[in-house]
Amino acid sequence: MPRTSPFDHEPDTDLGRVLRDALTLEDDAAFSRRVAAAAEAVYGERSPGQWWTVLTVWARPGLVAAMLIIAAVAFWAGIWVGQSAGSASAAAAMDPLRTDSEQLAVPSLLAARQAPDVDVVLAAAMGR
């Protein structure tokens, strides 16, 4: 019979072989399938967590995308408002029922595409 010392650091292959034969159970494949089937329930338990996980993962890019969309909408809205204001001031400039000073109201000056003359600004401010 083989003997070992407390300082024997190598596995005993003979003992290992007989222990393996005595302890090994049959049909590992069937057992693996059984565990895999039971694991479905565990994955099911984890679904609520995954819902939050998905939200967390998407939160940052979602916020960035929302900000980009808002910025784009604001940009296009700004252009549209600018065009509307421009056409309104043009219409006002051609209104024959209004005096020059009325037609040179502050909103019209602000909507103008070119800087007005100083005299015109002063006239508008004095209400002439």
Partner: peptide
């Protein structure tokens, strides 16, 4: 599971 089934069962 397949890798560790024999060890775990033993």
């Amino acid at each position: 599971v397949s890798r560790y089934t024999p060890q775990a069962r033993r």
